[in-house]
């Protein structure tokens, strides 16, 4: 396993990359997202697995994003994602709408190395009409007419997320957030920030092993303490609801959003926190 500094980790994600991010109730690496903004990344294609939240809104507001494929973009109780809504209205990003189980299924097809997988439902939704890459076939196993949707495998260029710990073999403990394992299995390169690197093998521990992603999938790790913040890391620190409310308030306008970036992404204090 290759342990890097946070900025070196961010420098691996090039302009135009396809980047899969978990939503705010899972473990996006907000530290890595802030580093990408400081590095001035452009034209990223975000993939929300299966939906998108604060981390995606931050990247969109900072002008890093060309498109987003997702089943929803929201700040949860803090309301709509203001920079996503503004960018869509201004025409500076495009959105490819999906539905949650379709996002999972497309990644599962990539996990298995098969070109597509079927999924029930969706027929009759306007999502299908706007997804020429999704096909409807007649179920070849059914005795009667049975239309069913086929979804193509989705292989993101990068998976970015945060976790409590990695070991020196590159194994990463994500606990019950197993959707991160699906993202890791399906993506070409996996970049992870962690609170700490432990000096024992996570896979030698029968209790930790089932919540661990094997190092074979993990390309690089960087230490970023409180790297999920303002998202919570279960068992370590809580979700920062007050900060979410502050973000939602400031990000209502572009000027407010720029002030937010200065305070929480570019300032010396933010930089010190990233080291």
């Amino acid at each position: 396993m290759d342990l890097l500094q946070l900025d070196a980790l961010a420098s691996l994600v090039l302009d135009g990359a396809t980047v899969a991010l978990p939503p705010d109730n899972s473990l996006p690496s907000c530290a890595l997202v802030r580093a990408l903004i400081r590095a001035g990344r452009k034209n990223l294609h975000l993939i929300g697995v299966p939906v998108s939240g604060y981390a995606s809104d931050l990247l969109i507001g900072a002008g890093c994003v060309a498109s987003i494929e997702t089943s929803g973009v929201t700040l949860g109780e803090a309301g709509a994602a203001p920079r996503f809504v503004a960018a869509l209205a201004a025409g500076t990003i495009t959105v490819l709408d999906a539905t949650c189980p379709a996002m999972h299924t497309m990644l599962q097809a990539a996990e298995k190395g098969v070109p597509f997988m079927p999924l029930r439902g969706i027929i009759g939704s306007d999502i299908l009409a706007h997804r020429p890459d999704w096909k409807v076939i007649d179920n070849p196993f059914a005795p009667e007419i049975d239309p069913i949707v086929l979804l193509p495998a989705l292989r993101p260029g990068f998976a970015l997320f945060h976790a409590e710990m990695a070991d020196t073999h590159g194994n990463v403990y994500v606990g019950r957030r197993r959707e991160l394992a699906t993202i890791a299995h399906a993506s070409n390169r996996v970049l992870v920030t962690v609170e700490q690197v432990v000096d024992f093998d996570l896979l030698d521990d029968e209790r930790l092993a089932p919540g661990t992603i094997g190092g074979a999938y993990v390309d690089h790790v960087a230490i970023a303490q409180r790297g999920a913040w303002p998202i919570g890391l279960p068992g370590c620190y809580d979700f920062d609801a007050a900060h979410f409310a502050e973000y939602a308030r400031m990000a209502r306008t572009d000027a407010g959003f720029q002030a937010y970036l200065q305070r929480y992404v570019y300032s010396d204090a933010a930089l010190a926190a990233a080291e």
Binding site: P50, V51, P101, L119, G121, I127
Partner: peptide, 12 residues
Amino acid sequence: PGSFGSAFMYMM
């Protein structure tokens, strides 16, 4: 915000 899981759950 977007459709979330509705296009699947409503039918299943």
